[in-house]
């Protein structure tokens, strides 16, 4: 249960954690007590403390993904009391602190659940599908060393700022976990919009959106529900407006692709 006022005294809670030895084996919830916790402790630090206790008695610690612990690497990926990244808006799991919970509460902790993100162990899922979408078109083809001077193309501040809003995506997958269709459209649209807004991204704008969307569909992510749970769960509060922008780009690109004149083939070779 989420505390209405942040706790200042030490608290004790029970955590109800999803334990699953591997993708092939079934999982279940297991309860663990976590006592006398400093309210300034992060939720992940609480898991560290519980794990130290488990390791001391030779039991398998709870596997969870984490790295930077400052909300930027996108590794941590917990569903806390039913919400991806927990009760607070605009933060990742690692930025959830124990002061947010009532003394005596039961905190349920699960992995992100979506078919394209299979469980590897306990709270860790395989999110390599996001890398595959990125590889399908999430880039500007610029060979190292071939760039022109950085100030050669002025970009209006508003455009650069909007591109930055989209570029903030940390690739955690909370948008997919929050969506009942397991849609990845917020993730994909963030990259499509960032690059599509900038002049440098124009030459590949059509192929980028077509290829990334095709890969997203192929990997089993669903379509947008238009309910925007994704934006609500996003630790960087990326706006669902970018999904609309991607849809416009997609339609335009599809038409252009259908009616595009074909260049004359076979111009290779030569002396």
């Amino acid at each position: 249960m989420v505390a209405e006022k942040p706790s200042t005294k030490n608290i004790s809670v029970t955590i109800r954690v999803w334990r699953q030895p591997s993708a092939a084996q079934p999982g279940r919830f297991v309860d663990y007590p976590a006592r006398d916790l400093n309210p300034n402790m992060s939720l992940l630090e609480m898991l560290d403390v519980v794990n130290d206790q488990l390791e001391r008695i030779g039991e398998d610690p709870i596997a969870f993904a984490h790295d930077c612990r400052e909300g930027i690497c996108g590794t941590c990926s917990l569903v806390i009391d039913g919400k991806p990244h927990g009760p607070h808006h605009g933060v990742a799991s690692c930025q959830t602190y124990m002061r947010s919970f009532e003394d005596g509460s039961v905190i349920t902790i699960e992995p992100f659940r979506a078919r394209p993100f299979p469980v590897i162990k306990d709270l860790i899922t395989d999110r390599s599908a996001f890398d595959k979408i990125q590889q399908a078109g999430g880039f500007i083809s610029i060979r190292t060393g071939s760039a022109c001077d950085a100030n050669a193309t002025p970009i209006p501040k508003e455009t650069a700022d909007l591109a930055m809003d989209a570029a903030q995506c940390i690739g955690c997958g909370a948008c997919v976990a929050a969506c009942k269709n397991a849609s990845a459209m917020l993730f994909v649209s963030a990259k499509v919009s960032q690059l599509g807004l900038l002049p440098q991204g124009q030459p590949e704008r059509d192929s980028r959106v077509l290829n990334m969307v095709a890969k997203m569909d192929e990997l089993g992510f669903g379509n947008c529900t238009n309910q925007y749970e994704c934006s609500a769960a996003c630790p960087k509060l990326i706006s669902h407006d970018f999904i609309a922008r991607m849809n416009r780009d997609y339609i335009a690109a599809s038409f252009r692709a259908a009616f595009k004149p074909k260049p004359a083939a076979g111009s290779g070779g030569g002396a």
């Binding site: 880039f139 500007i140 610029i142 190292t144 060393g145 071939s146 760039a147 022109c148 001077d149 950085a150 100030n151 193309t153 002025p154 970009i155 209006p156 501040k157 650069a160 700022d161 591109a163 930055m164 570029a167 960032q194 690059l195 900038l198 440098q200 991204g201």
Partner: peptide, 22 residues
Amino acid sequence: VNIIDQCVAQGVPFAREYGGLL
């Protein structure tokens, strides 16, 4: 200096002034 050129060409959204320059 080459690094900044390279990154801008890749679509890194560096902070800009109102005139559009970095």
